[in-house]
């Protein structure tokens, strides 16, 4: 029974466009007339012709009918199956602590954290690709340097690598123990890619007088 229904549905899908195509080819004169009037109207130096084409539009309703030309139909189907173990349905890009202590999960943390700190809190996915974002490709020396955007901790450079940010101006700081901090003002534009190389110099020890 199921095969019969599927067969009928497929037949219908194939026949409908063929029928429409046949209908559209029944009146070749109509389309020829339409083409002529269009070309006449397009001629810039023939004002009477343009007027003629206007008059054509006032003709019988039959000539003004829209016709749909269906030139092809494609069908597709797919099936996917993952036989592996079941994981939590979202990806956490920065790993878990030591990236700060957040009581509860990240959803609740995103509510209380801004109140506790003057710096922005970046929830998981804050630097993922998104429509209307710009790309920052970050290379640091040392690779495990900590990255801060507008003072808020973003992660370590070796894990971040590429950050996608909304358009705007940001203060980037890259820091590593025993190294001088690296500061740069970033201007992020939609669809633009910015390559930043931060080589942190060893911290200069203060000489005692």
């Amino acid at each position: 029974m199921r095969e019969r229904v599927l067969g009928l549905a497929t037949l219908l899908l194939v026949l409908t466009p063929l029928h429409l195509l046949a209908q559209s080819q029944k009146h070749p004169d109509d389309s020829a007339a339409a083409n002529t009037s269009a070309s006449e109207a397009a001629a810039p130096d023939s004002a009477p012709s343009a007027k003629e084409s206007e008059n054509d539009n006032d003709g019988p309703a039959e000539k003004r009918k829209f016709r749909w030309h269906v030139s092809g139909v494609s069908l597709g189907a797919s099936y996917s199956h993952f036989s592996g173990p079941y994981y939590y349905p979202y990806a956490y890009p920065f790993g878990y602590p030591p990236f700060g202590f957040y009581p509860g999960d990240w959803v609740t943390a995103s509510f209380w954290y801004p109140m506790a700190s003057p710096y922005p809190y970046y929830a998981p996915g804050a630097f993922h690709y998104g429509d209307g974002r710009g790309e920052i490709r970050l290379t640091t020396e040392p690779k495990e340097a900590k990255v801060f955007i507008d003072g808020g901790y973003a992660g370590t450079a070796d894990k971040l690598k590429t950050l996608w940010l909304d358009p705007g101006a940001y203060d980037l700081t890259v820091a590593a123990p025993g190294r001088e901090d690296f500061h740069q003002r970033l201007y992020v534009l939609t669809g633009k890619s910015l390559k930043i190389t931060a080589k942190l110099d060893p911290e200069q020890t203060k000489e005692n007088p």
Partner: peptide, 9 residues
């Protein structure tokens, strides 16, 4: 560079 945010940046 065509959005208002881009202009502002």
């Amino acid at each position: 560079g065509s959005s208002d945010k881009d202009r502002s940046t």
